[in-house]
Amino acid sequence: MFDRLFGRKQPLADTELPTVRNVTLGRSVVLDPLAWRRFGDDLKFPFDADTLQIVAQGLVDLNEGGFVHRFYTDDDILFQAVSNDRAGADVTDVTLFAPWRSTYPSGPWERSEWRRRLTARTFTDEGLPEYRRFWFDDVAERQEPVTFWEDLHDDRDGIVDRRIFQVCMLFARDLDGGGRELLLAIDQENEAGEVSFEIMLGVALELGEFRA
């Protein structure tokens, strides 16, 4: 979904791409599939391999002292780490996401309806069970989504190749055996004004469940 979204190139203030737990653009990440296989058929997560080849890297500055580091494969599998620092030394959360569905709006009303779905207490889609809002808890009937720009890199020259503005909400559901499956619903727009709606399913990873 990201290879078709283009933007201008910008130099970074710090030209070093972060390396997070030894993960960075151009490297392979070896996963422990038992991290999600243990949940069996209850899991909808559409991925079952043990190696990721990272071909693109993204960085999100949350402007509140936190950073989101994103690492992508050719087939849009997303390895994501949240840290308290830009360098990725203080990691607080690691998640693996896989695409479920990608669509393009045909008119403003579709985008308005999609944004409404992002604010709801629950979320579902064709072929999926119900997921409940995970960010901000699910007490309020409506909750405004999170918004941010993501800077994406296709090589290690320290120049931003693409920028994507995203409006997103994270939902989750409990699994048999005490686990949790995540659903990330996204409205994304590049600097050329191209818009798509993305649904990604994910699972949390422990630091011992991957290596690079």
Rank of each mutant, 00 (worst) to 15 (best):
L152I: 11
A172T: 09
F197D: 02
A212L: 02
D74Q: 12
P18G: 09
V68G: 07
L183V: 08
V139P: 00
R132D: 07
G107S: 02
D48I: 07
T73S: 13
M169I: 01
D176R: 13
L34N: 13
T51R: 13
W100P: 00
Y72A: 01
G40C: 02
S196D: 15
R180D: 13
V82E: 06
Q188H: 13
W100A: 00
G202R: 00
G65T: 02
F165S: 03
R133K: 09
Q143H: 04
D176H: 14
F134S: 13
F47C: 11
T103P: 06
L31H: 03
D41T: 15
T73A: 11
P11H: 02
Q53K: 15
L183I: 05
R86E: 06
D50K: 08
I54G: 05
V20M: 01
D138G: 05
L182R: 11
R27T: 09
Q57T: 08
F136V: 06
D14A: 09
G202E: 11
H153N: 02
R115F: 01
K9Q: 15
R133D: 08
L205V: 04
L201A: 00
L59K: 06
V82R: 10
C168Q: 12
P46N: 00
F6C: 15
D90I: 03
W149Y: 04
D154A: 11
T124D: 03
R173G: 13
D75F: 13
